[in-house]
């Protein structure tokens, strides 16, 4: 399939889906509305809601808040995950001692932490950042831990035979290996940073995309709920595109990055 044909069919899927939605939400079939607009809204209403948000500029403030929370969660969670993952991998005894607690914390569904964070950190951005950090941290942590553990013994022996000290091995072998594993989990980690931010906003906040959706739901404005979801999807796709660009630049030496989560 050529690029153009592919694009055509991809567009067709959207057109057909939206048309069906619009049709069944406005035209009664056998005297009954299959998609009552009260519950399902209509594509036209959703589009006009999105347009209104951008035209009035209301959306920018919420987007910026969510973006800022995601970025903070991602950066703090990644830095923590890299440092702790690296430390544990190089100190097997420390890792063995903490192992059951790490497993326990990772087993906990993070959403239940949101009320606690709201209590501790208030309704501002930091409770959302904290929720995102707990998600991002573990993904990066496990990847880096694995990456350092699985450094090829041949490459390590080669480093030693070339005369590297333990410190030089850390710098030239363990560290690049750990970072490459971190970058291969980048997409998942960024995704979870956004999830943390939005879920946190949804459960209690005064701004952000999650807040917008939650508010709309509170007044049964289904059109605005859908509008919020569309904006959120576009937002994540944009961020993911940015991540792909960064990854391409940083992982030139890798034949094919394999992600783990």
């Amino acid at each position: 399939m050529s690029r153009l044909t592919l694009l055509f069919w991809q567009l067709m899927v959207a057109v057909v889906a939206l048309s069906l939605w619009q049709f069944f939400a406005t035209v009664p079939v056998f005297g009954r509305m299959l998609l009552p607009p009260f519950f399902f809204s209509t594509p036209v209403d959703v589009a006009s809601q999105i347009y209104k948000w951008f035209a009035t500029g209301v959306i920018w403030k919420h987007l910026m808040i969510t973006l800022w929370e995601s970025v903070l969660a991602f950066v703090i969670g990644s830095v923590g995950g890299v440092l702790v993952g690296f430390w544990f991998a190089r100190q097997p005894r420390v890792a063995a001692v903490f192992d059951p607690y790490v497993k326990m914390m990772n087993a906990l569904p993070r959403v239940v932490l949101a009320p606690i964070f709201a209590l501790w950190l208030g309704l501002g951005i930091w409770s959302k950042v904290a929720l995102g950090v707990t998600l991002v941290f573990f993904i990066v942590f496990f990847n880096v831990y694995q990456g350092v553990k699985e450094v090829s013994t041949t490459v390590l022996d080669n480093g030693r035979m070339l005369g590297m000290s333990e410190r030089q091995l850390t710098r030239h072998v363990y560290w690049p290996s750990a970072l490459s594993w971190m970058f291969s989990s980048l997409h998942t980690a960024v995704g979870f940073a956004v999830v943390g931010a939005v879920v946190g906003e949804y459960l209690g906040s005064a701004a952000g995309l999650g807040y917008l959706i939650q508010q709309a739901e509170g007044v049964f404005d289904v059109g605005a709920v859908f509008a919020g979801m569309f904006v959120l999807s576009a937002f994540v796709i944009l961020i993911d595109f940015g991540v792909t660009l960064v990854e391409r630049r940083l992982l030139v030496w890798r034949p094919a990055p394999v992600a783990r989560d």
């Binding site: 041949t154 490459v155 022996d157 080669n158 480093g159 070339l162 030239h172 030496w253």
Partner: peptide, 24 residues
């Protein structure tokens, strides 16, 4: 030591792989 398996540092370019022996 020249190893049987691939022992080059995959994250370094060819020239950096060679230069590392002197750099360290």
């Amino acid at each position: 030591y020249l190893f049987q398996a691939d022992a080059l540092f995959p994250w370094k370019t060819a020239i950096d792989n060679v230069a590392i022996g002197l750099e360290i």
